[in-house]
Nucleic acid binder design. Sequence first.
RNA 1: GCCGGGAUGGCGGAAUGGCAGACGCAACGGACUUAAAAUCCGUUGGGAAGUAAUUCCCGUGAGGGUUCGACUCCCUCUCCCGGCACCA
Length: 815
Amino acid sequence: MEKYNFREIEEKWQKRWEEEEIYRAKFLSDKKKFYVLEMFPYTSAQIHMGHVRNYTIGDVISRFFMMNGFNVLHPIGYDAFGMPAENAAIKQKIHPKDWTYKNIETIRKQLKKLGISYCWEREVITCDSDYYRWNQYFFLQFYKKGLVYKKLSPANWCPSCKTVLANEQVVDGVCWRCGLEVEQKELSQWFVKITEYAEKLLDFSGIKNWPERVIIMQKNWIGKSYGTEVHFTIPELNKELIVFTTRPDTLFGATYVVLSPRHPMVQDILKKGRLKSEIEKFLLKVKGQGLTVEATIKMEKEGIYTGFDAINPVNNEKIPVWIGNYVLMEYGTGAIMAVPAHDQRDFEFAQKYKLPVKIVIKNPEWNGIPEKLEAAYEGEGKMINSGQFNGLSNREFMEVITEYLTEQGKGRKAICYSLRDWCISRQRYWGTPIPIIYCKNCGTVPVPEKNLPVTLPYNVNITGQGESPLKNLPEFFHCKCPQCGGDAERETDTMDTFMDSSWYFLRYASGDIKDKPFDKEEVNYWMPVDQYIGGIEHAILHLLYSRFFIKVLNDLGYVNFKEPFKNLLCQGMVIKDGAKMSKSKGNVVDPDDMIKTYGVDTLRLFILFAAPPELDLEWSEKGIEGTWRFINRVWNLNSNILSYESQGTDTGDINVERIINKTINSITEDITKDFHFNTAIAKMMEFVNNLSKSIEKKECSREKLVSVWQRFIKTLSPFTPHICEEMWELMGNKGSLVAEKWPEINEEYLIDENISIAVQINGKLRGRITIPAGCSEKDVVEMAVKEPSISRWLKDKTILKKIYIQNKILNLIIK
RNA sequence: GCCGGGAUGGCGGAAUGGCAGACGCAACGGACUUAAAAUCCGUUGGGAAGUAAUUCCCGUGAGGGUUCGACUCCCUCUCCCGGCACCA
C-alpha cells in the first residue's frame, strides 16, 4: 500500500489545474452562471487563518456549483491601498508601493498553495493605475450628477505632528505616535451624497438571502425616524431656530433648547458679544473632545447658557438657549428642544444645571401630579399643562400639534435619517488621487476624462507628520488649469479605500479590458454576485457603500441590476485560547506551517469541520490531527478498494447503496440549505466508518463497491480536491472532478424497511420499538402496548390520549 | 448607554417543537510490537440500584410560562462575545 504523500499529490494537481486552466471563467451568455466571491484580502504581509477559512468556504461552494452544471466565476484580487502601507513605510523605510507589491507576491503564492478554484486571469490590484483610474472616472461621473460635493468637516488633528489621524490612531484621546492630546480640526473635505439614497438603501427586496442581523444592522445605521420640525424664534437675533423632534407631543414641556457647538447660530451669538469669553472657553474645551467612540461614550454631558432666549411657538414661553457638547451637527438640524420631564437625558442635564422641569404627560399610575420627578417619564398618557389640548392622549396629540404647527407656519412633519454623507477625503498619500484642479480664475475644475489617470507619483517621502506628501511634490501639486491653461493646483486628498472595494467585483466580471471600467454586457451576465462570503466586521460600511455604488451605476445606466450581492454568508472569526488570533497576543497559527505538516487538504477539512461557518472557530492542534487521521483512512481505503475482490450478496449491495444515497442526500442538503459543512463532513466520516466495516465483511460485490466509492470521491472533492483528484485517477478515470456531475440520489434507497420509533408514557421516554415503514397509528399502538418495557407502565391504567408522529414518536397519556 | 448575537459533556460541536450529546478531540481499557510511535477494536453526561442483562432518577446559564411533548417558542434575570455615530 502506497503511503499518502500529500506534498507530491498537491503539487501535481495544482500544476495540472494551472496548465489546463480548468478554472478559467468563460463568458457563455446561454449558460446559467454562478458568481461566487470572497472579500478580497488587504495586502498586509501574509494571509492568516481567517483568510484560509473564508477562501475555503468559497471554494467548496464554487466547486459544488461547477459540479452542478453552472458556469462559475470565482475570482480573486488585492485590496492594495490604505494606511498600513504608509505605516510600514514609516517604520521599515520601504516605499508603500514596494511593500504592497512584495506582499502581493507572497499572498499570491500562499493562495495558490490553498488549491482554490480561482480564475487567476481576472486578478485585480486596486493600487494599479489601470484600476484606480476608474475610481477617478466614477468620481467624475458622480460629480457631473451632483452626487459629490465639498464641505467643512472635523477630523482628528494632532497639533504636534501637524497631521490628520484616523480614529484608530487616536488611543485614549492622544496621538499614537507622540502622545499629545488630539484636537478637532475643521477641514474642507469631499463627500458623496449617500443620504440621497437612504430610502433606496432601506429597500432590501432585491436581496435574496442575507443574514437577518446584517439587514437589521444596516437599517439601524440608516436610522429612519419620523418626527416634526418645530420653529422657535430668537427675537434678539431676529432668527428662527429649527429643531427636529420625534416627540412633538412634549412641546409644551420644553424648558430649554440646545445647539450643537458647530451650529451656525453659535457664530451669530458670538458676534453679539454677550458672555463671549465664557462661550469661547467652552467651545475650545469641546474642540479637544475626540471623535472616537470611546471618547463620546466616556464624555460627560456639558453645556453653557448663551444669554439668549427662544420663544416656544405654541405658548410663547421664553426658554433659554444653551450650547451642549452632546448635540450632533450631523443629525437632524443640529439643535434640539429639551423636555426634562419626558426624556431621561434631558432630565439629567436639567438636574446638573438646575433647569426647570415641566410635566405635560400624566402617567396613568400617578395619583395626581408629583411635585418632583425622580426620573423622566417616557411613557404614554393624557396631556396636561398643554393649554387647549389638555386631556388628549399624547398619541393623538402628536398628530394634532404637528397639524397645528403646520397651519401656523411654525413647523411641519419631517423624516430624519441618521445616515450621514460619505466622506471620501483622506489626507494621505497611498490612495487614489481625487481628480480635481483648483484654478485661481476658474475655481474648482474637474480633471477632463481624457487626462485620466491622475497618477500617484512614486517619488515621495513618507514621515507620518505634516501635510500630505503630495503637497510637497511640485511636479504633482502644481499644474495647468484644463480650462484656461493658467497656473493651478491639484487636489492632494486621496480617496477612501471603500471606494476601491465598492465596485472591484465588476472589474473581475469583465476580464481584461483597458478602455472602459468594465464590459457592460459581460457584467450584466455575471452580476449580481450569487454568493458573497466575508467577515461580519464588514456588515455595515463595505456592504452599504457597495449597495449604494451599484444603485448609482444603475441610475446612470451602467448596469441593469440594483443590488450587488444576492446572497451573503458572514463567517465567524478564527480564535485560539478564547481570543482572536493576533500578533500582539502571540496566538497566531501560521497556515504555511500547517500545510507543511499535514497538507492543505487536511487543513481545509479541519477548518470546515471544526464549526459551522457563521460561528467563531476555536483552533485546535489536536483537532487537526483528527482530520489528518480521517484523510489517511480515506487514502488507505482507496487502496483496499483497488485490490478488493468479492462476489458479495444482494443484501450487501443494497446495504451500501442505501448508505451512499443517504450520505450524499444529506450532504447535498447541508451544503445547499445553510452551508453547514461541519455536519456534511461528519456524515462522510460516518460513511467511511460504515463502509470500512462492510469491506471487512466482504458484504458487497466489487462492482458495487467501486461504483459507491467513486460517488463518494465526487462528494468529498469540493472539500479536499487534491487527494480526490488523485484517487479518481487511481480508480482509472480521466479528467478533473469539477467536470464531473454531482452524484444523483435514488429516492428508493433513502427509505428504510424498518424504522425505530420512541415510545413515551406521559412525555417520558420508556422504550423503543421497530416498526415496518408506513405502519398505521393503530398498528403502532398495538405493537407498543405489547412491548414489555411499555406494558409494565400500563398496568391498572387507562390510556387517555395517543399522539403519534409518523416514523418518529408515540406518546401515550395515561392515568 | 444603545443595537445585534450567544450560553448544550472534560473540549469543538449535533439536534430549531418529537429518542439531548451525531461526528471529532481528549481520557480509559484492549489488540499488534522486544519496546515505542503509528494503526485498529471497545468504553465514555452525572448519580443510584443490581452478580448481570438491565432499570430508575437528574441533566441543554437561572427562574417562570405555553404544550401531550421545549435545547428549540414566550416572559423575567445573570453572564459572555461582537458592533456603534449620546440619533433627540
